[in-house]
């Protein structure tokens, strides 16, 4: 089962490597990973999307919590949450046809056009990336970049210091 885990971690040298390394050491997989520092810059929030049974995810959160630099861990999948991703497609202008534009207009997008290429940034919730690419046609896309899912509780619940 897909799981979205949020981690608050000290913004110290080596801290990220410890958290990421732990997944490998303990045989857990990382589907996607997103990390950036928050307000005062002393700590970061990570979102790790992983797959595993209830037991495996319980172990993951406990093991991550054990890292000295980790401040808090929460398995967002236990409750209602948003999992939002930024996907950026770049198209050669000539291939950016009306069919593709129609597909993309159904999403929250921002478009940057140049004479040669069009870059489309999509903010996608619970995205089905594979079927999106399929519907556009893989060969029509010049370049792709994804942020990986970023998770947040849907309700008042928060994960703060």
């Amino acid at each position: 089962m897909k799981r979205t885990i949020s981690i608050l971690i000290e913004n110290k040298p080596g801290a990220l490597a410890r958290a990421v390394g732990l997944f490998h050491q303990r045989g857990y997989n990382i589907e996607s990973l997103n990390v950036a520092p928050l307000t005062d810059g002393t700590y970061s929030r990570m979102t790790v999307i992983t797959k595993g049974t209830e037991n495996v995810v319980e172990q993951i959160t406990k093991q991550i919590n054990k890292l000295i630099d980790v401040i808090k861990v929460s398995d967002l999948s236990e409750g209602e949450h948003h999992e939002i991703e930024l996907i950026i497609f770049k198209f050669i202008k000539s291939k950016y046809n009306t069919r593709i534009q129609k597909i993309l207009r159904k999403k929250k997008i921002s478009v940057i056009e140049r004479s040669d290429v069009v870059t489309v940034a999509i903010i996608d919730e619970n995205s089905d990336f594979d079927s999106l690419v399929k519907s556009i046609g893989k060969n029509n896309i010049h370049e792709i970049v994804r942020s990986g899912g970023v998770g947040i509780h849907e309700t008042e619940k928060n994960l703060n210091l």
Binding site: G14, G21, Q25
Partner: peptide
Amino acid sequence: MIGVSRPIVKHSYLVQ
């Protein structure tokens, strides 16, 4: 050393 020992330590420091 920090990298090599990472999975087998409780914690580690590189003195800055």
